[in-house]
Design a protein around this nucleic acid. Structure first.
Lengths: 197, 197, 197, 197
DNA sequence: GATGAATGAGTGTTCATTCAT
DNA sequence: CATGAATGAACACTCATTCAT
């Protein structure tokens, strides 16, 4: 059974198992034993690839964050229209992408946030992520708004995106991506309308 | 020490201790032993007043929810202006009241949300709460908007309130209540502007 | 089963079980589970009375040390002869008392010494103990010898006592207390003979 | 990397790593992984050269014992004076040689003794070693003392040597070899003085 | 000869819960 | 009413050992 060069495969395998475990029983009950069982490996292997459980949790979060970053980046590269509105639109769309809007990911994010309040390493990760959204939005708004207006618009839109996402996650029903995006787009347009001609 | 009529006092004492414990170490590490220690009582008493730990958690959440309900209700009773705008304003203000915007409460809400995804009783509580905000907002918007517009406005404003709150809770810095309320007020006004004269 | 005021009883019970466990399988294999089983209690109770395994080990060592201290103290109180020789004699006898010269105690002391090299709290305990023997001996020798002679005599006698004890412990055979004491007494007398008339 | 004739080199390498590991963290925490890391080899190789961990421990002890034997043997071969006193002197000196009186060796000896109480193979090794010292001393004393006196003198001197060594090892301070040897020499001379002219 | 991936039993420890007092 | 002694299952983590490569 032992093979060489298994590291990337096993790491991915264990991260997926962690997402499944958190989805099924919540982070509180996502024990090493369960995660290992879901991954089809032994308990001990987790400390072989990740230092400990915290390491696995952090790696799982980084995985979700990277999925978001890559998603937005790809959408922006595909843009032909360089207008602020077009950029803001794909940022919004990226945040409501299927990679973020699904049971396991949503439950993991939620658990991650709650945990991050008491874990400095996770808190750092989370702040970076929060700031990235704000920063991306602010950057685009700034192209047409005053600095103060851009900042406020970015703060509002970031909050609106997170809030729509949060209420969707908590509702238990299927997430109505379309409706959420429409609300966010409208907010974006109302803010862009403040642009001085 | 044993006294009669201690029930309400002890319950309140234990709920406050639970909030403190979650604030200090997070819900994952908020053990019965710690809560009992913070409350200055023995371990065993918790099962005497609440069936078990889940009962205490649920009671703590109901406590926070009631604080919000009462807060909004009081503000609305004090209103002299019966306009939709005035009502929406106090709903927003109530959600950013000091009883909700403080470390222990925020951390407990966050932990509660994460936990609720895997606990039917807590999920029920949480949905009632979510729905109340939407419902209150929708009700006021409906007085001047079409049903569709009112629903969308309520959904957006509810998400914006929750999102501002969430980002404030996660930031780790002091919550800038004023700024958050301004953003929510502006959104409210933009939606109310859709009213047919 | 739960009773009040069990603390001293349980502590003693667990210390005795620890001595038995170390005697039977060595400190390396003296697991909490084994100790609890020997004591006829549950695993969890150990952290209730001692913070953790280290706490139990340290308490066990203090128990052995106290037995030695009390033993020597009692013998000295019973002395009618106040001469240095009489005092030295009872110190030697105390160190070869049955409370110290028996399988469990010897194995525990040995394991304790080895462990103390890498555990500051245990090392402190061990140094205190080592110093007490030297100090007691030096004090008596000083009454008839020069300071330098007294110090050397104390160092030598302390080492001889420990060495006799050690070789006895390691031999696996029954400890020949009589023979060991004779050797120590002779060394004592040879040193006392240096006294200036 | 694989080469032929690596056996003696690897064995020596691993024994030195074992001494380092025991010195640094104690025998209880000297895991295979740590030893392998200190030796700069893979975990698995230990079972290749030594059957298992016990085999490595036993080999390490034999290494220390051989160092002592060789050391004393060399000193005795260099002797020009064939008197009992000269022989006893080099036996003492050999036991306080730098190869025995240093952190890693002392900690390993101590741990070895404690472990030997519960491991027949180690116990056998340890008894052989103990007996050799006694036997060597007795043999020399016998040349000038009666059998009874020689035995007692050997027992006492062996104990004194071990005791001086033990207290030195446990003290944590640098070992005062000179002082220890003086005490042992004095004891030797006091015993030799019993010789019938 | 040498690696390191993989195992799984075992460890100390924590903890919600129970219950005699 | 209230205590805190006691339980025992569950937990994260460690580790000697095995073995395909």
């Amino acid at each position: 059974m032992p093979k060489v060069g298994m590291q990337p495969i096993r790491r991915q395998q264990l991260i997926q198992a962690t997402l499944s475990a958190v989805d099924q029983v919540g982070m509180g009950d996502a024990s090493i034993a369960l995660i290992a069982k879901l991954a089809g490996v032994s308990n001990g292997i987790i400390s072989h690839y990740f230092q400990d459980k915290n390491g696995l949790i952090a790696a799982t979060m980084r995985h979700l964050m990277n999925a978001l970053i890559i998603n937005v980046a790809e959408r922006r590269q595909a843009l032909t229209d360089d207008s602020p509105r077009a950029h803001l639109k794909v940022i919004i769309e990226g945040n409501f992408d299927a990679s973020q809007v699904n049971g396991p990911a949503m439950k993991t994010w939620l658990a991650f946030w709650a945990t991050s309040m008491h874990s400095p390493p996770l808190h750092r990760l989370q702040r970076i992520n929060d700031h990235r959204l704000y920063s991306n939005l602010c950057c685009q708004f700034r192209r047409v708004l005053t600095l103060d207006d851009a900042r406020t618009a970015a703060r509002g839109l970031a909050a609106l995106i997170d809030g729509l996402w949060l209420r969707g996650a908590l509702s238990g029903d299927a997430f109505d991506t379309e409706q959420a995006q429409q609300i966010a787009f409208e907010y974006m347009d109302l803010q862009l309308a403040k642009a001085v001609s």
